[in-house]
């Protein structure tokens, strides 16, 4: 499913992305009946949330499906992208190169 949204200001775009990514991650945490779902999943690192590599792949695939994009492996392996916040910022910064209809589309 691809949901487009129209946002003119970068900070709003980031905020909207953060909310969408947080929603995806929260669903994964709820599915594993994890108390961490109650936390601030946007700013907590994946390490703090106890995400395993399989959880992480589930998150990434869902983000790709939701935004209708393909994320390059280099980004997936980038340890600096360690939370929803950092991912949202990265996606916003790289929206053009990702040719992402789901990010910032009018």
């Amino acid at each position: 499913m691809t949901v487009s949204f129209s946002l003119s200001r970068p900070e709003n775009k980031n905020e909207a992305l953060t909310n969408r990514l947080s929603g995806i991650l929260r669903q994964i945490l709820i599915a594993r009946n994890d108390l961490a779902a109650d936390r601030d999943v946007a700013s907590s690192t994946f390490a703090a949330l106890g995400l395993t590599s399989v959880d992480y792949l589930e998150f990434i695939l869902n983000v790709e499906a939701d935004l209708n994009i393909d994320i390059p492996d280099e980004a997936m392996l980038n340890p600096a992208l360690s939370s929803v916040d950092t991912w949202a910022a990265w996606l916003a910064d790289n929206a053009a190169s990702l040719q992402t209809p789901g990010i910032g589309a009018a």
Partner: peptide, 10 residues
């Protein structure tokens, strides 16, 4: 291994 992402591999 692409599985090696997230917190596991660093």
């Amino acid at each position: 291994d692409v599985v090696a992402f997230g917190s596991d591999y660093t």
